[in-house]
Nucleic acid binder design. Structure first.
Lengths: 344, 344
DNA sequence: GTGAAAGCGCTAACAC
DNA sequence: GTGTTAGCGCTTTCAC
C-alpha cells in the first residue's frame, strides 16, 4: 500500500452538497438514507445539488460509522469447475439484488481456508459464505463472537453451530447405487473428490451402504480430487485394471466428464453401453449431447435462495440458531449409464 | 452457559491494543504499517497485545483516512462462459497477491455497464476492470477525473483515452480465414457474438478481408450473441439452409462448441470431415478429445499479467497515458476443421 | 423537519 | 522512535 501518487483531488462530500443546496450536512445524509425524514423541498434541493456536483455517498465511510457494511465475503476454490462459477454468479446476483456486494476471496484450491478467513476479518463483512470449503472451529467461534454470520455451501461442518446448505448427498448416493444395481452392473467403482470433503464422504458412504444392501462389498476406489486431470488419471488406473468396472460413480460432474473422455477416447468404451458413468451436480454442459451424462442434480438456484434466506435470518437476529439446510436433489437419467428396463 | 446474553459487540480497536501494550495508538498503527519506523521492543509489545485481543486493522477505516483503498472492482458479464470465469479467477489471484481484493459486479450480460459503473463509484475503488464490456465516454471521463484507472479486458474502446487489453483479434480472424481457405473450403459462414462487441467486429472484419483477398465475398452470417443456446439455434439455421456452409468460424469457443454439438447430433455432420468449425478463445474444455476444437488462443495468463501491469502503472502515476495492449494469440490446429495438407 | 455535535477506527503530519 | 493532534466522510442522537 506504499504505492500511489497522492492526488490532491478531494472527493465531493456531503458538506459540499449541503453548502450548494443551502442546507445542513445532516439533511444531505438523510436524503440519501432510505426511510429518513426529509421534506420534499429539502430533498429536491439536495438532489439537485448532488446531481450538479456528481456526489455519491461514500459507502466505506457509511459502513464505518454505521458499523455495518454491505459487503459479503465469498470464498471460492477457483473456477475451473463450472459448478463453482455458477454458484458464485447466482450468489452474487441474489445479494446484489438486496444491495449487497460480493468481495471475492479465491483460495488456492486446498481446503484450509484459515489464512483467507484471517484476511476476511479485516473487512467489516456483513457475512461470509464458504463455497465448498470447510471452517476451523476456531474461526467459527470468532465469527460468532463478532456476530458475523458464516455459511457453508456445498459442505457441512462437524459442528452444528455452523450453518450450511447442501444437497441431500446421502439420498443421491443411494439413488445412484440403486439405479446402477437395477441396471444389472457387476463391478462397481467410486471416484472420490477430496478426501477431506464432507460432500464426497457422504456420497460415498451412502453409495456403499446401498450396495451393501445387495451384498455388494467389493467396490473399487480412486481419488480424483475434484480435478479434471487427476480424475482422468484415476479413470485410467481403473480401466486399465484387471477387474475393469462396469459402473463408475464419480463424486462430481467434472470428474465424470473426465471419465467419459478417457473411456471413450483412450479405451474405446462407449459410455452407456460398455460402461456406465454417473456424476453429481448436473452442470449445464453435462446435458450437452456429446456428454449426455446421467447425474444427480444439485439445484443451484434453490441452494442460493436458501443461502440468502439463512444469511438474512442471521443478519436480522445474530442470536438466531445455525441452520443446516439440506435440499432435495434429483436423479437425471441420461445416456451415459445403462438404463434399467422400465426405470421410471 | 449464558444464553441470550447481550454481547456488546464493539470491535477491538487500535486504542484497546495501545492500552494493553502500554503505548500510544499511533505506535499500534505504525506496527501494522509496513515500512513505518517502530522499535523492535514496541513492535513486540504491540504484537503481543494485538494477538491476545484478536486485533485486526480495519481496512475500511484505513481506506477512509488514507484516501486509497485496496479494492479493485471487476465487472463480469456472468460466468456461463468459462472464459470469463477463467479470467476472473486469474485476475483475482494476481491482485490478491499484491494485497488487493476483488469486489465483484456482475452485470446482467448486456453491454450497457453504466448502471453498474454508477454503483462502483460508491466504493473508493483503487481501480476498475471491465471484462468483455464497454464503457460510455461519460464514465470514462468521470473515472479519469477522480483518478481511478479503468481497464477494458477483451474489448476495446473507441476512445484511446481508455486502456485495454485484447488479443490480436484481426490477426486471429485473418489466420483463421487463411487456414480455412488452404483447407479448400467453399462456403464460408461467420457466427457473430454480440453486435455491439468490438471483439466480434474485429474478428469478423479481418476474416472477411482475408477471404476477400481470395475473391470470396459470399459469407453467410448469423448472430449467436456469445450464448450457447442462441449459437445452437443460429447453427441450425445455417445448416438447414440451402447453401450449407462447409466452413464455420465462430466468434468464440462457447459458440463453436454449440455448433459442434448441433452439427454432430442434429445434422449427423462430423466436424473436421463434413464441416469445419473453428472457434476463438481456446477454453480448457475445447481441448478435450470430444471437442478437439481448432481455435485461436487468447493467452489468458498473459492478458492478466498485462492487465495488472497497466493498472499498476496507472496507480503509480494517475497522469500516465492510457495503454491499448494487444497480445499475440496463436492458432491451435486440432481436429474440428479439415487440415490443409502440409499445414505447418 | 432540521441543524449542531459527537464520534466510527484509522493514518499522517508534527513536535519532541 | 514516540506521542499528540487533526481529521477522512459519514450516521445518528439530541435539542429546537
Amino acid at each position: 500500500m506504499e504505492k500511489g501518487k497522492k492526488t490532491t483531488r478531494r472527493m465531493v462530500t456531503a458538506y459540499d452538497v449541503a453548502r450548494v443546496a443551502g442546507v445542513s450536512q445532516s439533511a444531505v445524509s438523510r436524503t440519501f438514507t432510505p426511510g429518513a425524514s426529509v421534506s420534499k423541498a429539502t430533498r429536491q434541493k439536495v438532489m439537485d445539488a448532488a446531481a450538479s456536483l456528481g456526489y455519491r455517498p461514500n459507502f466505506l465511510a457509511r459502513s464505518l460509522i454505521s458499523q455495518r457494511s454491505n459487503l459479503i465475503g465469498v470464498v471460492v476454490p477457483g473456477m475451473a469447475n463450472p459448478f463453482y462459477a455458477q454458484v458464485l454468479e447466482q450468489l452474487a446476483a441474489a445479494f446484489e439484488a438486496q444491495g449487497y456486494r460480493v468481495l471475492l476471496f479465491s483460495t488456492a484450491s486446498n481446503e484450509d481456508s484459515d489464512p483467507v478467513l484471517e484476511e476476511m476479518l479485516h473487512y467489516q463483512l456483513a457475512a461470509v459464505i464458504l463455497l465448498s470449503a470447510s471452517l476451523s472451529s476456531r474461526f467459527a467461534d470468532e465469527c460468532r463472537q463478532i456476530g458475523m454470520p458464516v455459511l457453508l455451501v456445498n459442505r457441512k461442518s462437524h459442528s452444528d453451530a455452523v450453518s450450511s446448505v447442501t444437497t441431500d448427498n446421502r439420498v443421491g448416493g443411494a439413488k445412484i447405487a440403486e439405479f446402477l444395481i437395477a441396471g444389472g452392473h457387476q463391478r462397481f467403482a467410486f471416484l472420490a473428490g477430496r478426501e477431506s470433503s464432507s460432500t464426497s464422504a457422504e456420497r460415498e458412504q451412502s453409495f456403499r451402504n446401498a450396495l451393501l444392501q445387495h451384498d455388494i462389498t467389493a467396490i473399487q476406489r480412486e481419488v480424483g480430487g475434484y480435478d479434471f486431470e487427476a480424475a482422468a488419471a484415476a479413470t485410467r488406473r481403473l480401466l486399465a485394471g484387471a477387474e475393469r468396472p462396469d459402473a463408475l460413480f464419480c463424486a462430481n460432474d467434472l470428474m465424470a466428464l473426465a471419465a467419459l473422455n478417457v473411456s471413450r477416447y483412450e479405451f474405446d468404451l462407449q459410455p452407456g453401453r460398455d460402461i456406465s458413468i454417473v456424476g453429481f451436480d448436473s452442470l449445464p454442459i453435462s446435458a450437452w449431447p456429446v456428454f449426455d451424462l446421467t447425474t444427480y442434480v444439485q439445484p443451484v438456484a434453490e441452494m442460493v435462495m436458501q443461502a440468502v434466506a439463512i444469511i438474512n435470518a442471521q443478519l436480522l437476529d445474530s442470536e438466531a440458531p445455525a441452520i443446516q439446510c439440506e435440499i432435495e436433489g434429483q436423479l437425471i437419467v441420461r445416456g451415459s449409464a445403462r438404463q434399467p428396463p422400465g426405470w421410471k
